[in-house]
Amino acid sequence: MNDLTDTTLAQTAREHADMADSAAPVKMAARDVHVYYGETHAIKGVSIDIDMDHVTAFIGPSGCGKSTFLRTLNRMNDTIAAARVEGQITLDGEDIYASGMDVVQLRARVGMVFQKPNPFPKSIYENVAYGPRIHGLAASKSDMDAIVERSLRRAGLWDEVKDRLTDSGTAMSGGQQQRLCIARAIAVDPEVILMDEPCSALDPIATAKIEELIHELRGNYAIVIVTHNMQQAARVSQRTAFFHLGNLVEYGVTSDIFTNPREDKTKDYITGRYG
C-alpha cells in the first residue's frame, strides 16, 4: 500500500529531477536553530543547508514554523520584539547573527518576497528604483533606468509595463503586483531570494507565471520558497524540506522526497493524510 510511484506528484518531481545537481555549493547553512516567541518554542533545532543555484521548497502543515524559519534567514524576526533566535546561521560562512553583521546589508543580500503582494503606493518605476537608491547602487539617472529595466525584464514584467512606468504600483493586478515585488527584490542584486507563499493570493494563471519566473531565476540565485501547494513544490524546487511542529522532519532532493520519503510523517503529509 501507499505506493507513491504512480501518483502525479512523484511524476512531476521526477520530471524536474534532472535539474537537481547534488554537488552544488552551500550558500546558507543553519545549525541547531531554535526560535522562541515568548514562551512558545516555534523552531526546535533545525539544521539545513541552502544550496546555491537551486530552489529549496519548505513544505509542511500550517503553523509548523516554515515561515518563521524563513524569516530567520534574513533576520526579519528581529522586528518582532518577543522573538528570540538561538543557534547559528551562516551566509557564505559568515554568521548572520554575529554582532558585526549589518542587518541592512544582510537584507539586501538576502531579499524577500511576501505572501501578499505589497508594492509601495508609488509608481512602478519608484517601486523598483527604491532599493538601488537607498543602497547607492546607481551612479546616475541612466544607471537607474538600466537597473529598473533589467529588473523588470527578469521579472517578466517589462513588456507589460514599459509604457506606464509612472502608474501606481498598487493599480496593477495581483499577479503583476507580485512580479513587481520580485522585480523590486532582485533590483538590489541579492544572492538569496526568500519567498513566503508567493502565490497563495494569486489565480492559477498568475501562479504559473510566477513559477516560470522562479525557473528562470534559478540559475543566478539561491531561492527558498515556502508553499502549501505540493504540486508547486514538486514543479519548481530541486530541494524540499518538510517541517512539522517546529521540527525539520526530512530534507533532501525533491524527487526523492516525493517518490521515496524516508519518514512516515512526510509520506502522510504529501499524500494528503493531514495538513
Binding site: 526579519m76 541592512v104 537584507r107 518576497v113 505589497n118 537607498i134
Partner: peptide
Amino acid sequence: PSIRDAALGIGAS
C-alpha cells in the same frame, strides 16, 4: 505592516 515589511525586506533601515 506589509509596507514596513516590504521596505525592511529590501534592506531599508
